Computed example of a mutant assay.
Amino acid sequence: MGVYHAGSRAVQDRVGVRDLADHVGRSIGQAIRPVAAAFLELQPLLVLGAADPATGRVWASPLTGAPGFARATGPRRLSVAAGVEPADPLAAALATEGTHVGTLALDPRTRRRMRLNGRLRPTARGFTVEAGQVFSNCPKHLQRRRSYETVARTPGPRRRTGELTPAQREFVEAADTFFVATVHGHGADVSHRGGNPGFVRAASPRELSWRDYPGNAMFLTLGNLAADPRAGLLFLDWTTGAVLQLTGEARTEFAPGGERRVRFTVTEAVETPSAVPLRWSAPEYSPANPDPEG
């Protein structure tokens, strides 16, 4: 299989960027280069995306640890010495040999990020991922947070609902960052979305939408959605550590002039207070962020 599948190709052709996508796609490899390995070992946060093997629902989950908990232990192997809580929506997927998983390491301090997608193997201390795709993204729409501290937190009880509460809708609409997990027939991926607060809209308790800003022309996320509408969203409170995980389906609307909007229908929401033991400094919004109403 090449870098792109039919879903990504369909979106690239619709937008007219196939040649640019071919050029950018040369940056996607299977090896974890030394600079990527060094970057990984500095990160206290890893975001994972996969489909639950029992329900098929796609989720994104955060994983944290002291820097070095996620590191390269081979030319194509990511080893993670940590796991999610047993009640996390991705717990079953991370315990299943051969799970297609997407991982994203993001450093708000430097506005750098890298993605590693592959197949998972559970281990005694966590899991490993044999890389099928490894690549970095530009810092566009990534907010800078210059520092963090690790704090002692006990996760509160998880709250599961079939739609968003009024408080959750307010949380979503105040967010400047979220993560989106998607899948296709041969893999999984997790990506970052960022903008000024208000760039995500909660039109109703079961529908969110956001404008798809111009990016690297690969259209991995929208391509996956064109092939399979299942998706999982992850919203973090960068101060309190609260986590909101959503699963459902998403579709892309293409408007004249090239504007695109993604609409996400919520199937299930899981909210966990104090889930992440990291407290980050206030954001400095990316200069690339357009006005949310633009």
Results as ranks from 00 to 15, higher is better:
A6F: 12
V11M: 09
Q12G: 02
Q12F: 05
D13L: 13
V15R: 04
A31I: 12
L40A: 09
Q43N: 10
Q43G: 11
Q43F: 04
P44A: 02
V47M: 00
T55K: 10
R57T: 14
A70I: 02
R76C: 11
R76V: 14
A82K: 06
E85Q: 15
A87H: 13
A92F: 03
T96F: 06
E97Q: 11
A105S: 11
A105W: 11
P108G: 06
R113W: 04
R115A: 08
L120K: 06
A124D: 14
G132Q: 14
G132L: 15
N137S: 09
S147R: 13
T150F: 12
V151W: 00
V151K: 03
T154L: 14
T154M: 13
R158V: 10
R159D: 12
E163D: 12
E163Q: 12
L164K: 05
T165C: 08
P166R: 08
E170I: 12
F171Y: 07
T177S: 12
F178K: 03
D189S: 07
A203T: 15
L208W: 01
R211I: 13
L220Y: 09
L225H: 03
A227R: 02
R230W: 07
G241I: 01
A242V: 04
V243W: 03
T247C: 05
G248S: 04
G248R: 04
P256V: 09
G257Y: 06
R260K: 10
F264A: 08
T265H: 11
T265R: 14
E271L: 12
L278N: 03
W280M: 06
G294P: 12
